[in-house]
Design a protein around this nucleic acid. Structure first.
Lengths: 415, 415
DNA sequence: CAGTATTTTTTCGAGGCTCGAAAAAATAGA
DNA sequence: TCTATTTTTTCGAGCCTCGAAAAAATACTG
């Protein structure tokens, strides 16, 4: 059950609130923070004075070059980039990408590597991840002790506690406790996140007007993934990572899905499904392991050029996505959708059938008003989301530590 | 955005926490409350002394007849039944039921009435509701001023703010702002709730071990409804009432649903759909307006006796429910399910096909471990849920009023 | 039956936190 | 230079929770 509020929690929570307000707004003045948090000026003054003293925030004199107003000018508060750093690790098909990010959110170092993730042994895969993190941490240009948190993202299913990858399409191996492995290796708190969830976090940061409290990020790539934000919070299901939109059932006893079952949305809308359908192969045909982005783009071009099996394949994908979204909207009500990934570049081919299908569903009653955004490149989004995830942890758990939140590792990571 | 915690909120929240602990536990001692809330004994002592002074709680000497332990015996704290009262109004097909409930949750008065809801005019329907409430309020045995809240429940779609019924299968009329109507008429705060959501609340109260943080209540009656609790909170979608499980798509272009669309789960599993299928009518046949409970029981008996169209109808219902649940579980992960309503009594006929279907889905990976409870009688559950809903409001908004929570009406309703 | 052990509840002072009001600081216009 | 205006800090008041100790209420013990 929810627990009572202890007296010492008060300051902790309000500290976290102030830090969050600064991270959101960029360079807010104390007065603006007071307005958004609803706390009094005196409280904001006291807390921000503490935070500046601890090197977490810093004052930045020139809030706006031409301050037109009379009176004492506002002085902006910003995050001190040197207060801490975090690291992001994004593991995707045949690709490993790491970045070190300062407390203000700027990339200060990065490294990328091609791997053959589908054929690597388990140990090699883990070893590569550990090695690339170690190289970044031991970079002489970087103060190792200042890295306060590592966030890994991977396509696939992670456990609720964000400790392990349970299953992923990019490797045949299962149940790899990446978070624990990195924590043990480097003594830095780490989490294992789902790639689509990170996309959702990044979308909210990029466009908080459109993606605020309720929205959906759908990854249209080899598989179909979803990141779902409901009532302002990432929705991750009750047990595992949840949100497996791609494996909602579109057609009972339908097309063969990569997951081995039949009729999933992904079995019609994943790259391999579009490929299979465009090649006029049977719906029972075993999904291919990978379709290159170039091949998919060629497929989309062919579909735009002439009415043929390629166009029909995209139509079927749109239909599956439309009915799936319709069912989803029946449950959660319509919300803005972002389509991300290589097939989002072919959304013009998908959209008509999608809208037609969604209009057939209870959730799509106002299908005209449902709007779709597209973003073909998922990797930058995933990294951005990871960075935000890790930084938010530092904000809340390290720089606003409370009785229950303080971990053994927390202290030493503070710069 | 979330707002800072003001100093005066502290006491308010902890008061609410203590009241909630008492409502949950029944007769907890101060020591037990301190343990469950995590607050200190001194704080609990101070708050409970206040609450007793205000007549909200009362001490009940004999906690347990034979207190085996040494030391000063615990003295139980209970809700003072006279602190307030609430009223529940349940409007279902051809039936209107009202109850007055004391602060401790006991029914102290009730009245029920048969109506012809499908043919009544809008004004008559509203008038009947207002009249029955007025009769209970003006009952000389009852102190009118002590009714602090009214909760209405109806089958159908309500708006997010719990003010109005937008659509309901029990009446042709739409957009009736029941909550506002009753508030204006009697000056008592009222809310308009969805029946399945109230079922879920009642289930949690009845069996908090099974129905705790995540569970699903499904109403198997003429239509298919759902109440969904996620992470301990009722899930009501982002805009309207949401949770329209019955209108997730089972078969694109499939059977005709009462909602006018095709292939909804309800078009296979609602009473009218089972009836239509058992009578071997076309899936395009217009849904009948009502099937009596007796007819449904006869159908179930026939299905149990021989393998024929009746049994096949239940099988199809099970399949639709199974695929629907599979898709739902793909999104939210598996959770305990309660099947409520007249067709829950025929769950033995539904379950095999349901389990077979769910095992075909990603969400049903562990379908063996998913457990179903059945409860044929929905009305008592709905009323119980309404009562809890209304009482919780009194607990939190009236007896633990804060700066933002205090309403103009709050004060005068305190007994 | 008095004394001791044990458990629950209350009391009391200390320490923190937020708030409002007032003061101080910093600037633009007159 | 003075005044108006706006932002930020300071300071005392008022609450709240907490820990420790005291008080209360009972069971055991010889």
């Amino acid at each position: 059950m929810s627990v009572g509020i202890r007296h010492d929690d008060l300051r902790r929570r309000n500290r976290a609130m102030v830090i969050a307000a600064v991270r959101r707004a960029g360079q807010p003045s104390r007065t603006e923070i007071a307005a958004t948090t609803g706390l009094s000026h005196s409280t904001i003054s006291a807390i921000s004075s503490d935070l500046i003293g601890e090197g977490i925030l810093s004052e930045s004199k020139p809030s706006e070059a031409g301050s037109l107003k009379r009176g004492r000018p506002q002085v902006g508060l910003g995050l001190n980039p040197e207060a801490a750093a975090v690291m992001t690790v994004v593991l995707s098909l045949n690709f490993l990408s790491v970045a070190v990010i300062d407390y203000a959110g700027q990339v200060i170092a990065e490294e990328q590597r091609r791997l053959d993730t589908l054929t690597m042994s388990r140990d090699t895969l883990v070893g590569e991840c550990v090695a690339i993190v170690r190289r970044r941490l031991e970079d002489p240009d970087l103060d190792v002790r200042s890295v306060a948190r590592i966030a890994l993202a991977i396509q696939g299913i992670t456990d609720t506690r964000a400790r392990a990858m349970l299953w992923s399409p990019i490797t045949p191996h299962t149940d790899i406790a990446f978070a624990d492995i990195l924590e043990d290796e480097f003594g830095i708190p780490a989490t294992m996140e789902n790639d689509c969830n990170m996309m959702a976090i990044a979308l909210r940061r990029r466009d908080p007007d459109r993606y605020r409290d309720d929205f959906i990020a759908i990854l249209l790539s080899h598989g179909i993934g979803m990141g779902l934000v409901l009532k302002g919070e990432l929705f991750t299901g009750t047990h595992s990572s949840g949100g497996e939109f791609g494996h909602m059932i579109h057609q009972p006893h339908g097309a063969l899905c990569r997951c081995g079952r039949r009729g999933c949305v992904e079995a019609y809308a994943g790259n391999y499904a579009i490929w299979r359908s465009a090649r006029q192969m049977s719906e029972d045909a075993k999904p291919v392991a990978d379709v290159s982005d170039a091949d998919m783009r060629a497929l989309a071009s062919a579909a735009r050029e002439r009415d043929g099996p390629e166009r029909e394949a995209y139509r079927k994908a749109g239909e599956a996505l439309g009915y799936g979204l319709g069912s989803l909207f029946a449950l959660i009500d319509p919300a803005p959708v972002a389509m991300v990934g290589v097939s989002a570049a072919a959304f013009d081919l998908i959209e008509p059938a999608l809208r037609e299908a969604i209009a057939q569903t209870a959730g799509g009653q106002h299908s005209k008003s449902i709007s779709f955004d597209t973003e073909p490149n998922e990797l930058p989004l995933i990294r951005e989301g990871c960075a935000m995830r890790a930084l938010t942890f530092v904000d809340q758990e390290i720089f606003a530590p409370g009785t229950q939140a303080r971990s053994g590792l927390g202290g030493k990571n503070v710069a």
